[in-house]
Design a protein around this nucleic acid. Sequence first.
DNA 1: GTGGTCTAGACCACG
DNA 2: GTGGTCTAGACCACA
Lengths: 127, 127, 127, 127
Amino acid sequence: MISINLEDARPLEEQVIAALRLAIVRGEVQTGGALPSARQLAGDLGIHWNTVARAYRRLNREGLIAVRHGRKAVVTGRPNGSTDAARASLRDDLVEALTLGRSQGLSRRDLTEVFKDALAHLQERKS
Amino acid sequence: MISINLEDARPLEEQVIAALRLAIVRGEVQTGGALPSARQLAGDLGIHWNTVARAYRRLNREGLIAVRHGRKAVVTGRPNGSTDAARASLRDDLVEALTLGRSQGLSRRDLTEVFKDALAHLQERKS
Amino acid sequence: MISINLEDARPLEEQVIAALRLAIVRGEVQTGGALPSARQLAGDLGIHWNTVARAYRRLNREGLIAVRHGRKAVVTGRPNGSTDAARASLRDDLVEALTLGRSQGLSRRDLTEVFKDALAHLQERKS
Amino acid sequence: MISINLEDARPLEEQVIAALRLAIVRGEVQTGGALPSARQLAGDLGIHWNTVARAYRRLNREGLIAVRHGRKAVVTGRPNGSTDAARASLRDDLVEALTLGRSQGLSRRDLTEVFKDALAHLQERKS
DNA sequence: GTGGTCTAGACCACG
DNA sequence: GTGGTCTAGACCACA
């Protein structure tokens, strides 16, 4: 379902969160569908189940999934924050990423190309 | 020259690096121009000079600036990595940021709007 | 009669207990009147009947209702603890809730307003 | 500074959070003042320092304190949410608490008395 | 020295 | 069986 890279510098928890978010956004897990249990997913990824549970809790706080005692986590697709805050936050993230790209020799034209590439990546869905 | 937000959750070092990169990319410091000394910049920002020194070292490794003993750090404007690596890295960062935005209720159209906004923000200052 | 929110983070059992207590306190079920059977109420709410049964058992222990084998649960209206203990417990709950409100930017005046609002909500229905 | 009750049914983390919130609201820790380190407070309370660290992180997310790598946690006194949401949330908490009190035999008059008592408790400050 | 992450395993509450 | 809490201790990043 998702994959993890132990060599990656980012915390495992972050990686799990990002990967699940991507899977949900790409529709690989339907709204209303259930995620594997924390223990099972952890086993598949070869990491400790507490790490996955923590990731689930954070996605739960974000409003992306609904986590309840004794039940499997379910995708809600109902974010809770304002979109204005989301836009501001996204803008900051993009400025940061684009600045980095620019500082590494990419032209403004390059940035736009890579953006389109990234955007397309969000849509691919194995049908 | 740059500013720092102590409330921000990101490490001070990261903030300093990001702010310097942005200033350089926007042309606020000319290629060949000198950066303030680590101790002075740290004093202006109210943080420990070690934190600034570490930031300089990282920008030096990136090839954005040239740091030499006893001299002031100078903007080189000649990154050292391949642009292919830069593109791949940027793509990952964008996918991550866009996924987050999408998961918080933004439409694909929103993403493109915010992207243009961010891109404009990189525009060199007319000074 | 009562309603449950599956999105709510609180355990279903807690929600059922709180909702029943409120209905009783507001006089929507008369003293001496009968509650629906655990299985029926569970069916109406779309949850497992064990969860409702556990809720009934707890209200029974509290002395608010009387549960007997083969009979429907009946509202007694005769709590069994001392009012002193109730006062102490309530005080703790209020301190906790008010502290939270205060920490989120509400003034002392706000607290009193919201208190009056909450108190009014307990008012028995004229029906 | 604060105290914990191991007999209490609530999670230690919750207790620590509630106690710190109260201390802050009562002004026992000045805005801008530093909290003891997670390890030290944990030692004083006789619990694991991870539990305290988690409590700090949650208060940080609430905006009550500022937690930063390598620095002591500092009281900010700048909550981040809207007061409308805080009012709604408080109202629900109060309805719940008052319903419980009422169900245990307290009169409406009792409720108001206990409320005043609780409110007074938020103010006491050793000057 | 401070907080953050991860693993590990025990025990509990919920359904 | 599911997720939640707590303890424990190793290791890391930040200041």
